[in-house]
Amino acid sequence: MDFILELLLSAFIVIAGFFSLVGSFGLLKLPDVMTRLHAPTKATTLGVGGILIASILYNLLAHGGVSVHELAITLFLFITAPITANFIAKAHMHLERKKVQDTLPDPAGKKIGWSTYDTPHRQTEG
């Protein structure tokens, strides 16, 4: 392979490793669930995606073909990571709902909706 292509692949791997490291560090060090959720879904997805793209490029340039397995892994990763983050965030909001309802003032005597950003005129009875 050409030196420029090897340099490009090396850059992909180093940048992807940096994103994976930052995502892993954020998962360990951030204080609560919603901030910890952001680190692996964004940074680590970019990290693993960068490694997979580098691997796809290497197979394309060195062996002359694209690996279907790597394309499938990349597609699966980029589809499932945001969906999983959405499910975790919704579950966290649902579990925290009772705590929020107990702490928010309710001056009109109405029930507070599922969102913590409901305004008094948009709340519904129920």
Rank of each mutant, 00 (worst) to 15 (best):
F3H: 08
L5R: 01
E6G: 13
L7V: 12
L8Q: 03
L8P: 04
L9M: 14
S10D: 06
A11M: 11
F12Y: 10
A16L: 03
F19Y: 07
S20G: 14
F25R: 03
L30R: 01
D32T: 11
D32S: 05
V33A: 04
V33N: 01
R36T: 13
L37M: 12
H38G: 05
T41C: 07
K42E: 10
T45V: 13
L46I: 12
L46E: 05
G47F: 00
V48S: 02
V48C: 04
V48H: 00
V48W: 00
G49R: 01
G50P: 09
I51L: 05
L52Q: 03
I53P: 00
A54G: 12
S55Y: 01
I56T: 06
N59S: 07
L61W: 02
G64R: 07
V66E: 03
V68C: 02
V68A: 09
E70W: 05
L71N: 09
I73V: 15
T74I: 07
F78M: 09
I83M: 12
N86A: 09
N86K: 06
I88A: 06
A89C: 08
K90V: 08
K98H: 09
K99F: 13
D102Y: 02
D102E: 15
T103Q: 13
P105F: 10
P105C: 08
K110M: 14
K111A: 15
I112Q: 06
T116P: 05
D118F: 09
T119F: 12
H121V: 11
R122H: 05
Q123I: 13
E125A: 14
G126E: 11
